[in-house]
Design a protein around this nucleic acid. Structure first.
Lengths: 223, 223, 223, 223
DNA sequence: GATGAATGAGTATTCATTCAT
DNA sequence: TATGAATGAATACTCATTCAT
């Protein structure tokens, strides 16, 4: 299948490294391979090859293929959530929190396409036990957004009926962002910030407003 | 692996059926099995079992596993798009077209969970050659929505900058609907119509409006 | 494997033919397919296709694949032997009999490459039960030649030691002719008669004589 | 299919052998099985069984069935050609070179029936990509003999017409030897040397001479 | 700590062959 | 007579996983 004779190798297979380093090597390789071929078409052989480590090491350090994949997702999910969390500072107003969160999200995806691919494409549908990891992250994201929306809503005295819908609304927003990120892969010239703005408008203004020329913009644009 | 000893069988293995019928049987079984286990964990053995047909028939009629899966996607994608198309009648105003399209979408997903699972979850990430089929359908959906949005925009004299964004907006909407449909799986009590309404509001009104009590509703609610 | 979409078909699948005709149709197709792909790579499907007859017919008329192949060999072997026999008329002197036999052999191979391929290449090594059929034909040929050689030998008072070797000599001659015929496939410009002459010289004169300019030629060259 | 319940096993399945050794074991087993059943009827299962090695090892070390078979042919062809080359020492006169070459050939076949079977029977007709390997060896042999004949011919002032025929003559000789070797399988009592002598006489003297009592003999008969 | 050697268990795919019509 | 429909049985090949060193 993978015919490339000059198999790119990872680190020059230096010996006797501390466990911590090895683990990172392996995970890096795994993310790369998983993002390239998908969970099922990725073989432990290739991962060990790319990592510059023998297969038994992988099993010793990170367990079976499933565990390895799960760990990949976990690591990348944490990375993504951390990036987002950094943006969402609690001293900001809800809408600015949301804006910075979106901005951080698209910025992260921009910088870590492989991570994003693993998280979104592979993890979603790799099969059984992985979705959970992913769904949890998604759930966290939805909850986060839901909280923001709810806070806004209650502070502005939103009627109770609309309030009920915030969770669904948050789910929709997450999906919209994922979809935008996907769509982005085919339109790579667009800067991250533009996408973030679009997502923000989608949530905040709605298409109806857009038509009337009401566009949301960050009040204090940065950098 | 598959532990159910009393393997459920499909049709009572009646013999000598015309090709057309068998093909449908097989596709039905395939959709069922693929939606349940995912592409990779689905085995031809189980599919043939569920279809009540021997494996050689499957290969004779529908080709290798890849072809079979592709055909599943194709059939379901067509089904979904037809359902939607039925809603989007061109004599309606754009917003009503959009509304009926969304309504049809959620209605279809409600009635054909398996089909939706195959289309959304499995096909997205099954690996190589399948995404294309899927991406095409998605692209068609995006184009369709884009057209609606653009028509509205131009008829209402939208400024050119916002008009540029309609495709991304459409992509976001598609993603949002997918995500809503997914989220729905965990909240099955909500009626399809409610979701459609929410999606419509998301697109049309934006959250800002929602907070102000501006809620879009179909002018002529039906049934 | 066989990708030719416009699968050449045999006779226009006319119906209700007498058994005899059908059998010939089938055998013709079989010889063609076997000679092209070899016994194992030939599929009953392709044969039935080429013959313009459904598979059950083949089984009804000619039995299983093995039987079919055996019958092919039988028919072609008979054809070849008959051609040769026609040349070897008993009223001729032994050397002229041999000469005409060789001439007939190369002439036949020239006219029936497919038959020859089936007989020589496929039948030789197709595996178990076929070689017999082939070996029998070969044995008949060897016996025939042996008889000629022996007759010559005894009529010329050959010493008994040399006489013992005639069978091996005959075997060698048969092999030499086969090899020549094979070699011929790569040098198709050479006329059949030239090869026959060469074979004759090989047997009759030996290389030593050839060097001395002793060349055997048919005394009465024809047409 | 293979009915011998008490499947003979190869080496006592000793563990942890270096790759080189395993490869030889596997090739030995493969030659044995291929020579016995032929390429198509030989199953990888049986080969792995006979080799005392699991199938994955075979694939890891020697590749797919085709590759394995090709490698068998290559190894055996090299063995045969080396044996012959040892006999054909360039300081000898051409006829003695030829004689020793023939002697070496029949000696080798005598000692390695299985190898010969694989080379001659199976490789000839196994189907597609193998014949090449074989045909190359054959071509080498023909060229070798052709060179010998040509050298003799030119040194003795053979006329140009006869000289042209040496390649065909060589091809015929190769075929004759193969045929003799085959025929030998049914007459195993005959010593190799006798066959070599007969082949030599066939080439060198021709039947005509034989009848006159002219027999070629090695001037310095050995062991 | 690190790995080359080794395998069990599974899966897609094919093909000769035979009913039922 | 003639065939489309149907299958049992086999086989090549792969991959995650684990010893023995």
């Amino acid at each position: 299948m993978s015919v490339d004779g000059d198999r790119r190798r990872g680190p020059e297979r230096s010996r006797r490294l501390p466990r911590e380093v090895r683990e990172r090597q392996i995970l890096d390789a795994a993310v790369r391979v998983f993002s390239e071929h998908g969970y099922h078409y990725a073989s432990m052989d290739e991962i060990s090859d790319v990592a510059g480590v023998s297969k038994p090491m992988i099993y010793a350090y990170l367990g079976a293929k499933e565990d390895l994949f799960t760990e990949c997702i976990r690591r990348e999910a944490i990375g993504l959530m951390e990036a987002i969390s950094k943006g969402v500072r609690s001293e900001l107003t809800p809408d600015m929190q949301l804006w910075h969160g979106l901005d951080a999200f698209f910025g992260y995806v921009d910088d870590h396409r492989e991570s994003w691919l693993v998280l979104h494409r592979q993890a979603t549908s790799a099969g059984g036990p992985f979705s959970r990891q992913l769904l949890e992250m998604r759930a966290r994201a939805i909850t986060l957004i839901d909280a923001l929306l709810t806070k806004t809503a209650s502070s502005e005295g939103m009627d109770s009926q609309a309030r009920k819908g915030t969770e669904a609304h948050a789910a929709a927003l997450v999906g919209a962002c994922e979809s935008l990120a996907d769509w982005w892969l085919d339109h790579p010239d667009i800067p991250a910030r533009v996408l973030a703005t679009r997502a923000m408008n989608l949530v905040w203004m709605g298409f109806g407003d857009l038509m009337e020329g009401n566009v949301w913009t960050p009040t204090h644009p940065e950098s």
